[in-house]
């Protein structure tokens, strides 16, 4: 009982820091999706060079631990900017480095799921659309996009939850997010109530993950209700 009270108390102390987590995650999701879209286009492009580059990029990201990506961006970017643009970015808000690292990390799975969603639909559908007299853009917008959306959604949600979890490493470069806050609380209690504090932390992430999953399945359901004919 006492433990539950403690956890609730810690929840209250941690929640204010959720802003950082949300800002970092949302920015990286948006930027990462855009980069992923470009990558997907590169993967499907006519140019062999682009295709190979995109593949190598994705495969390297796939084999890179998030913490290493964050560290390399954090320590590497200032040097890069210094050498190439003669700009000093040491003063940047540290959050930017995390957002860049997570954007790079998110772009890889995003590109893969955009591509597979597009490929799973487009073949006969584009031809069918053109045959009934729609323009290529109309066909893409009205026929392919909605179907690709439904196909990509579950994997997208999965990647989003992954990103959210990777974002919990933000604290490693000194941004005061929920994890850092939790560690401070533990330090203030001289190491006491540690597991209760971290359980409160885990609980917050769990609720966000569940909310993402729930949201996606609601969207999926409403889509399926609207378009019963889409058999994936």
């Amino acid at each position: 009982m006492d433990n539950i009270k403690l956890i609730i108390n810690f929840l209250g102390q941690l929640l204010p820091a959720i802003n950082i987590t949300l800002i970092v995650s949302l920015s990286s999701i948006i930027l990462g999706s855009l980069l992923g879209l470009l990558l997907a286009a590169a993967k499907m492009s006519e140019s062999v060079v682009l295709r190979v580059l995109a593949r190598v990029y994705v495969s390297v990201i796939r084999a890179t631990p998030s913490i290493i990506m964050i560290f390399v961006v954090y320590y590497g970017m200032p040097m890069l900017f210094n050498n190439w643009f003669h700009t000093n970015i040491d003063g940047w808000n540290r959050m930017y480095f995390v957002i860049i690292a997570l954007t790079v990390l998110f772009s890889a799975p995003a590109s893969e799921l955009f591509r597979s969603a597009h490929e799973s639909i487009s073949k006969g559908q584009m031809e069918a659309g053109l045959m009934v007299g729609m323009t290529p853009f109309q066909t893409f917008y009205r026929i392919i996009l909605p179907q690709a959306f439904v196909v990509a959604l579950p994997n997208f949600a999965n990647s989003v939850v992954n990103l959210l979890k990777e974002g919990a490493l933000t604290f490693t470069i000194g941004v005061v997010d929920m994890v850092a806050k939790a560690q401070m609380i533990v330090a203030n209690n001289s190491g006491g109530y540690a597991w209760q504090t971290y359980c409160a932390l885990a609980l917050i992430y769990w609720v966000i993950s569940l909310a993402v999953d729930k949201g996606v399945s609601l969207v999926e359901k409403s889509y399926q209700a609207k378009r019963k004919t889409i058999a994936v």
């Binding site: 939850v161 979890k165 974002g167 540690a194 597991w195 992430y205 769990w206």
Partner: peptide
């Protein structure tokens, strides 16, 4: 499964590392 997949590995590390020794 839902709990483990819904929480960051860092949180799991911190919980195990603080709870198991005691």
């Amino acid at each position: 499964v839902s709990l483990v997949r819904g929480t960051p590995i860092i949180a799991q590390i911190l919980i195990v590392y603080s709870a198991f020794p005691s």
